[in-house]
């Protein structure tokens, strides 16, 4: 859904970042508007996952230069929880297990943190229970999920569905999906993709990180970016993904080299 007049949700300018002494991002630029779906593709080690964690505020990465603006706010100055409460959501590639905390309690604490931020009253267990059940259907999840400890003993597919369930509850303005397709069989992929598609609205945006074109058959992007060496090398429409699938990343590198030579 490209609409030139939409609100700019995310604007990234010349972003550089380190982990330890190693520079991972080397001048990344990206703009995402409301209603759009973006996909970042790239080989292992290109910095895709790092970028998604930096957007969410992971403390292991140090931003050394550049700007990230989220709906007009300086995102880099915000704590991870404030980013979340303002509408940034990261679906983790490897969601963590928290034995001892029930999924239902976790979802309620998380949901109420956002309500509080918005000046709304927190939902009690009863009302929340009702709300969460409507969201379960979206991901074809059994209510038994709620009484289990967060992600403990969940299969890969269950963990990913649980991430999207959280996204469905929190209704972020920017949903970042970090390899949401990894470890999913085709049926689970369809369920997760269908869940994401139903969460699309005119006023939110999605940024997908993936290795594979396959995901883009189910969540169709407006823009595909190819990332390599901590930068976005090239940007195109969804057809770029097919080209990548057919020709590999080497092709992009050659194009880039030719571009630089010119």
């Amino acid at each position: 859904m490209i609409n030139e007049n939409s609100e700019v949700i995310l604007s990234v300018k010349d972003l550089t970042a380190d982990v330890g002494d190693t520079q991972i991002l080397k001048g990344l630029n990206l703009e995402i508007k409301a209603g759009e779906i973006h996909a970042i593709m790239g080989p292992n080690g290109s910095g895709k996952s790092t970028f998604s964690k930096i957007l969410a505020g992971h403390p292991a990465y140090k931003v050394t230069a550049g700007e990230v603006t989220f709906r007009g706010q300086n995102l880099l100055e915000m704590e991870p929880d404030d980013r979340a409460k303002s509408g940034v959501f990261l679906a983790f590639q490897y969601p963590l297990e928290i034995p001892g905390v029930s999924n239902l309690d976790f979802l309620r604490v998380s949901y109420n943190a956002k309500r509080k931020q918005e000046g709304l009253e927190e939902l009690d267990s009863f009302d929340f229970d009702e709300l969460v059940r409507t969201k379960l259907d979206l991901l074809k999840m059994d209510a038994a999920f709620l009484s289990r400890s967060v992600n403990e003993g969940f299969s890969g597919g269950e963990k990913k569905r649980n991430e999207i369930l959280q996204m469905a509850l929190l209704e972020p303005k920017l949903g970042i999906l970090d390899e949401i397709d990894s470890g999913l069989d085709i049926d689970a992929l369809k369920i997760v993709a269908n869940g994401v598609n139903q969460l699309r609205k005119f006023d939110n945006a999605i940024l997908m990180i993936t290795h594979y074109q396959r995901l883009l058959d189910y969540i169709v992007p407006d823009f595909v970016h190819v990332m390599e060496g901590g930068r976005i090398l090239t940007t195109g429409g969804k057809e770029l993904a097919f080209e990548l699938e057919a020709r590999g990343y080497e092709w992009v590198r050659e194009e880039e080299a030719a571009e630089v030579a010119r």
Partner: peptide, 27 residues
């Protein structure tokens, strides 16, 4: 750090995140 970050990314502040993880250990 990764556990605390996961909870922070869901809107719990650092202290709440640490409390929830500590509770999970004790319960």
């Amino acid at each position: 750090d990764d556990e605390v970050f996961y909870l922070q990314s869901r809107g719990l502040n650092q202290e709440e995140a640490r409390k929830l993880l500590t509770y999970a250990f004790a319960i």
